[in-house]
Simulated scan of single mutants.
Amino acid sequence: MPADTTARSRSGARRAHDAGFVLDIRSLGRAPGSMRKLRRTVTTSEQLGLDLIAVPAGSEVELDLRLQSVSEGVLVTGTVTAPVAGECSRCLEQFTDSVDVSLTELFAYPDSATDKTASDDEIYRMDDDLIDLEPLVVDQLGIELPLQPLCTPDCAGLCPECGVRMAIAGSDHGHEILDPRWAGLAKFASGSPGSGSPEGAATGDHSVDIARNSTEEK
């Protein structure tokens, strides 16, 4: 599930200076068409993402953005690049990767028509001259990251019989599975010449063959 965002307002109401995911856009101005490019490295203070795969706390997230003034607010476009760590949903091994998230989102000016008419969960809002990108980044990671991550696209998972990772088990890995209805006959396979019942030993071998043949026919 996506990381809990209930404590983060889409309005970016958390007051802060121009640092981290918080952008001060006073230098951009509000004249429609004004544009500014921004590149920044942000160190995350907490994990961002899903249960099985996420951007770990303390990771460096690269922002490559364009901020553009429009009549109703500031249009933010660009990419967010971050490392991710996860657990493979097939073989349960830990793995690392990276994710590129594209952003295209309007942050509405306070008291603009969009601000007044849209509900809280429809748009992102500015707080005076500040934009908090973290809620947007968290939401987009929840969309972009897979619910069932894989360490490799062709991961073969675990052996259903013994649980070993198929990636290290080898191509000849396998298990002889006896039909349970014939399992009782397998005890006769332990008979051997000199055990006191040569005929019994032969009968045991023949019984195992019957069980195996019956399994193969199915």
Rank of each mutant, 00 (worst) to 15 (best):
E199R: 15
L136S: 05
A201H: 14
K187R: 11
V55H: 07
D132L: 08
S171W: 06
D115M: 10
G204T: 14
G58T: 02
I210Y: 00
C88T: 06
R39Q: 10
S34Y: 09
C155M: 11
K218H: 08
T5Q: 15
S197C: 15
F21L: 00
C162N: 03
S9F: 07
G49I: 12
P56Q: 07
R39P: 07
V101T: 10
G20L: 05
H206L: 15
P146R: 05
L141F: 04
V84S: 04
F21K: 10
E93M: 06
V61H: 01
G73P: 05
S71Q: 11
D97N: 06
D132H: 11
D24V: 14
L147D: 13
K37Q: 13
L145E: 05
R15F: 03
M166Y: 02
S45D: 05
T152G: 06
R181P: 12
T77P: 00
V137H: 12
K37M: 02
G196M: 13
G157S: 07
G194W: 02
L75R: 00
P2V: 03
Q68P: 10
I131G: 01
K116I: 11
H175N: 13
S59F: 11
V138T: 04
E134Y: 02
Q68M: 09
E122C: 12
L23C: 00
A13S: 03
K187C: 10
S102C: 13
G184V: 13
L178R: 14
G163K: 10
Q68I: 09
D209F: 11
G184M: 13
L145Q: 05
V99A: 12
G184D: 14
S190Q: 07
A82G: 07
I210E: 14
A113I: 07
S9H: 09
Q68R: 10
R36W: 12
S89G: 03
H206Y: 15
D120V: 15
P193V: 00
V76D: 02
A54M: 13
V61W: 00
D51S: 08
D209Q: 15
E144N: 04
G29S: 11
Q68F: 09
T77G: 10
G194D: 01
V101K: 08
A183S: 13
S190E: 00
V80F: 01
H175T: 08
P180V: 10
K187Q: 15
L136Y: 02
A183Q: 08
A201C: 14
